[in-house]
Every structure is written in structure tokens, then in C-alpha cells.
Amino acid sequence: MKFKRSERLVYMTQHLVSHPNQLIPLTTYVEKFSQAKSSISEDIRIIKDVMDSEGLGVLKTTAGANGGAMFIPKISLERAEEIIKYFKKELEESERLLPGGYLYMSDIMGDPKMMNDFGDLIATMYGDVEIDAVVTIATKGISLANAVARKLNVPVAVIRKDNKVTEGSTVSINYVSGSTRKIETMVLSKRTLKEGSNVLVVDDFLRAGGSITGVTNLMEEFNATVAGVSVLVEAKQVANRRFKDYTSLLKVSEIDEYNESFVVEEGNCLDYIKDK
């Protein structure tokens, strides 16, 4: 079958975007379309120029006999600001406030479009960091972790609070919960995470940071390095937070359960995007 250039461009763009952070040899497309390597190289240049001009991501190319192309998800600052603005609007709904000062976010965590947007944003912040796996804590952080991991093209490691027979051999630690001050347990299957991995920890909400500290301690059991921590929302006015090196999309403060009010403001993520 003979493909027109326009048809090749559609296929190649979709294929590259579907395999982020993976070098695709040009021979893949040479063989697929029975075209000369010079023609495929020109196709790649066209895709790259459009992505650059429209802020659709980064297309890196390598020359030589083993040359290829790699799509790296990256959004513009303007697009990041749109995502934060929409998220802020959604979170500011007063009926989200629950007893105990918690915020209802299950609908947001279950929204595939918002998760895709958050994946793009977080992947942009950590796109230049070597990440081998995305780590989260069951259960609310799983959808976010999957969205980010999809963009970075790395596996997800889910930490649980109880041992399941289907997990096989596991590693567990005890940690102090930041909100309840109770001793709790974290469990991770040995098969889930490779020794010596660089991991990105993601979660939906950050309070005192006890859980994230527990994750960091658990990663030490795997000789893994925490290369970054990113959360959707953080509680702003928290004393004695156990760590400070993290990114957040939004901050909440001045929570008043009686009047059902709270204040939402931008987190520090846009500062990270500006530096990219």
C-alpha cells in the first residue's frame, strides 16, 4: 500500500506520542512505508517544527545509522496556567469541605481528562529528571500515578497498607501518620520496584508529610532514590512539615468548617514550569 506524505505524518505523529520517552529508530518508518530514509527524515522534521511552534511537546532526533526520534511530553507555561486555573475553579466549590477539614476530591481523581492534564503538567516538571518508576500510596493516588507514568513511559509502584497474598514476597515498614499520629504500616512487593531505581512520588493531598516520609523510608529498603515528590494539593498552614522539597499544583488554607469556607491558591508548580 502506497501512503501519501499526509498519511505518513498522521501515523508517525500518533505513534511517537503513544511511545513517549522511547527512541523510535527511523528504520521503523522506512520499513513501514517503504520510503527512503531521507523522506522519513523530512517527515520527522515537519512533525518537529509543528510541535515546536505550537508547544505540543519536544521531538528529539539523533543522526547516524542508528538514528531515530523520541517524543518528550512538554506543555507550555500558558497551557500549564490554563490547567491550574481550571483545577482551582473546581476545587473552590464550598461543598467539597468535609468534616475534619478534608476536601472531597474523588470526582477529580476519577476525571480522565483532568488526570491526563495533570500527567502532562507533572511530566513537564520532571521530564529532564531520570525517572525509573512512579510511586504512590493506595488508593487515591493510583489514577494520578498512572497518568504521570503514562507520560514518562515508566512503571507504577503502588504501596499498600496491608499484605496481600497476590503480591508475593514484600517489604514493609512502620511509620507515623502525619494527620492521626498513629503507627501505620506500608507494604510494597519486591517484584514491583527494581533495586536502585530513581522514583517520582506522587499523591493527591499533602498535610504534615508523614506518609511521604514513610514512602521515603520504604524506598531506602529498595536502595531507591526519591528524585522528586509531587502532589495535587497541599495544606498551606502546617507546622513542622517533615520535608520541604516537593511540588504542588494548589494550596489550601484558612479552612473553616463552621462557615464551610477555605482559601485556594496556586502551588509552586508554575515556578518549575517557567524554568523549563
Score class of each variant (00 low, 15 high):
Tyr272Glu: 11
Leu23Ser: 13
Gln14Pro: 07
Ala133Cys: 15
Gln35Asn: 09
Tyr102Lys: 11
Ala239Gly: 04
Lys89Phe: 13
Ser143Asn: 14
Leu23Pro: 03
Asp245Val: 00
Asp132Ser: 02
Gly196Asp: 02
Lys85Trp: 05
Gly119His: 10
Ser172Phe: 09
Ile83Trp: 02
Val17Tyr: 07
Ser76Glu: 04
Ile46Trp: 12
Asn268Tyr: 05
Lys244Gly: 13
Tyr86Trp: 08
Ser94Cys: 04
Thr192Glu: 11
Met219Gln: 04
Leu91Ser: 02
Ser230Arg: 03
Asn198Phe: 07
Ser169Glu: 13
Leu121Val: 06
Ala65Lys: 15
His15Gln: 12
Ile212Lys: 09
Met105Glu: 04
Asn217His: 12
Val30Glu: 14
Asp204Met: 06
Ala123Ser: 15
Ile46Glu: 14
Ser179Arg: 10
Met51Glu: 05
Glu130Ala: 12
Ser39Ile: 13
Ile142Cys: 10
Pro73Lys: 00
Glu95Gln: 14
Val17Met: 13
Lys164Met: 11
Asp43Ile: 09
Gly228Leu: 03
Leu59Gly: 07
Leu23Asp: 06
Ala80Thr: 00
Glu95Asn: 15
Leu16Gln: 10
Ser53Thr: 11
Ala123Ile: 04
Gly101Pro: 00
Leu250Pro: 08
Thr136Glu: 10
Ser38Leu: 09
Leu270Pro: 08
Ala208Phe: 09
Ile108Pro: 03
Leu193His: 05
Arg150Lys: 15
Val154Leu: 03
Leu200His: 07
Glu220Pro: 00
Tyr86Asp: 13
